[in-house]
């Protein structure tokens, strides 16, 4: 989608490692991608693939012992408000410095997975949203409350003025998720990062939240990075998909190509192994053998090679393939398609 536009966010060869007593966990190990304005960019992967750490690195909220060891996180800032559309590298900013704090929550906002943990239980949800608005905009408390109220209306919270004065634990799961979305949107972010926003809610609530996000994205033309492990959700939400496995990008491309013409053996196997409401009942599913390795024993070469059916012995287990364009719009890191390896 609109690859002609200048990207809003460009991540270049990002590496985020965790330095533990037991060794180094390379949670994100060389990830490159572009997010364009108005795009819903899906990152899909199983546990330990680095999808959440990538997001945390962009927001500069990686906790120690984690550290960004390499790479650039280039954000194109909006014109106006004293900036003239310059590009800044978030990776070079101080994580708690003034500039990063004005971007985090302002230009880039986060919808976290667990809305209960995201709100403080001892302040009303209204006060927390008003605090965020007053941090990023020069408005009075009364005006901030008005903005918060309007946000609550926009996300479809019934009796919004009463809900503003309630505590997070008084709200139901669906309402809490809506309140979090209202908070994330309250400062008009240009980039919204949704980290598993519907994993903790039920299917019918999930459908409501997904519809709401889609509508808000259309109305405001914000870009969304949508992180999930659920292939169904990603197919319904994203326009462009990046598939990650053990800290590396396996494949990326437009959503239709990823689901209808997957190239990487991992993507292919993953799509085959999920039970679908449309598939025949009580037949054996094709499986991916083995399980995801522990991050300390990350395999040499391509991280997927011990579980791969199309393993090329002597090659996949020795060298790591680089992400290369293979089809018109698809990028794949697999030696089946090219011979380019990651520069060490």
């Amino acid at each position: 989608m609109n690859s002609q536009t200048t990207p809003l966010l460009s991540v270049r060869n990002l590496k985020t490692h965790f330095f533990m007593d037991e060794g180094v966990v390379k949670a994100v190990d060389g990830v490159t991608f572009d997010v364009h304005p108005g795009q819903i960019f899906g990152i899909v992967g199983e546990s330990g693939c680095g999808k959440s750490v990538t997001m945390k690195a962009v927001l500069r909220i990686v906790e120690p012992p984690g550290k960004i060891v390499n790479g650039e996180i280039l954000l194109r800032r909006a014109k106006g408000n004293g900036s003239n559309g310059e590009v800044i590298d978030l990776a070079t900013l101080a994580a708690n410095g003034k500039r990063m704090r004005s971007i985090r929550g302002g230009e880039i906002a986060l919808i976290p997975q667990e809305p209960m943990a995201a709100f403080s239980p001892v302040h009303t949800v209204g006060d927390q949203i008003i605090e965020a608005i007053m941090l990023h905009q020069t408005v009075s408390q009364r005006a901030a409350r008005k903005i918060a109220l309007q946000m609550f209306k926009d996300v479809g919270i019934p009796i919004p003025d009463q809900r503003l004065d309630e505590y997070a634990w008084q709200l139901s799961g669906g309402l809490r998720q809506r309140a979090i979305i209202a908070m994330a949107l309250s400062c008009n972010p240009r980039l919204l990062i949704a980290d598993e926003p519907t994993t903790a809610v039920d299917v019918t609530t999930q459908a409501q939240v997904l519809r709401l996000l889609r509508r808000l994205q259309e109305d405001r033309n914000a870009a969304i990075i949508f992180i999930t492990h659920d292939l169904g959700v990603i197919a319904q939400m994203a326009s462009y998909v990046m598939v990650m496995y053990l800290g590396l990008v396996m494949e990326e491309g437009p959503v239709d190509e990823i689901f209808h013409a997957p190239q990487h053996p991992y993507t292919q196997a993953l799509l085959r192994s999920i039970p679908s409401v449309n598939s025949a009942p009580r037949v054996n599913l094709p499986t991916i053998s083995g399980s995801i390795p522990h991050p300390f024993n990350k395999p040499r070469g391509c991280p997927f090679h011990p579980r791969c059916e199309k393993l090329i012995a002597g090659k996949c287990d020795a060298r790591t393939p680089a992400l290369q364009t293979v089809a018109e719009k698809q990028l794949v890191s697999c030696f089946l398609y090219h011979d380019v390896e990651v520069a060490s």
């Binding site: 299917v203 999930q206 459908a207 169904g232 197919a235 319904q236 959503v255 239709d256 209808h260 449309n278």
Partner: peptide
């Protein structure tokens, strides 16, 4: 409400 893993099939149109 079940999101189907196929971008060509749009689900979630019936909202509860």
């Amino acid at each position: 409400a079940v999101p189907v893993p196929d971008p060509r099939v749009r689900t979630g149109n019936v909202e509860l």
